[in-house]
Design a protein around this nucleic acid. Sequence first.
DNA 1: AGGGTCACCTGTCGGC
DNA 2: TGCCGACAGGTGACCC
Length: 286
Amino acid sequence: MPELPEVEVVRRGLERWVAGRTVTEVEVLHPRAVRRHPAGGADFAARLTGQRFEVARRRGKYLWLPLAESGTSVLGHLGMSGQLLVQPEGAADEKHLRIRIRFDDSAGTELRFVDQRTFGGLSLHDQTPAGLPDVIGHIARDPLDPEFDDAAFQSALRLRRTTVKRALLDQSLISGVGNIYADEALWRSRLHYDRPTATLTRPRSAELLGHIRDVMNAALAVGGTSFDSLYVNVNGESGYFDRSLDAYGREDEPCRRCGTPMRRRAWMNRSSYFCPRCQRPPRPTV
DNA sequence: AGGGTCACCTGTCGGC
DNA sequence: TGCCGACAGGTGACCC
């Protein structure tokens, strides 16, 4: 569940089903799932056992479970294919089950980290005075954070010497935006992905930020975007926002504004979807 | 220093 | 059928 709305859906599930529970056993079934925990899987398991989870928090695409009275937290990132699932004890292991966490209560469920491509993982970190795991200090606030500074973001965006989609995907400038919501916000803003950030006016950058927020909130309201069973909440359920996408994945389909067939362009080892009429490419600079 | 490229994985899909 | 390449929602180490 990679981008902000999908991660927030997972965070809410953890808040409901995992907060307040005490860990009795941790099984690390694949070393890559704890590769961001330098001391290794055995240390991760030993240090987590006996600890009690507090309410899950999130910044951008990272989420973490603070451990009560310890000054540490379990940090999680879902990568491209990670899932955090609350499953009945005894349910058959998923094919890509990487980490299992058991609890001391009688709720009858356990927490599982399942990840096909192993780009995601869990790790244990000290918290900074601000309450953030120390290794994500470089991650900017996300646009749904009440303390996100709109004016500062707009200024920083326009000062960058890069192109607008690159900037949106830079998690140290604004976090939580990935390939889907970048394309959606750019389509709503009528901006081409290769538009130099320096050419954005203040109103255009404000409008872009507004569209990022709007599209993320709209996705969150319907449980996020799921094209397949890889992207689900902690109960294994998909979101519905794929039906509302205007740009992402719509190659050759008519633009919902002007009817022109949408295009896909290879871009940074991935794809950008855009309307060639509504989102004109920037004039080549000399 | 900051921007841009590529590797890291496993799986699916479409073309031949 | 099978093989092969393209592609998939992300990140950060490493270039220049």
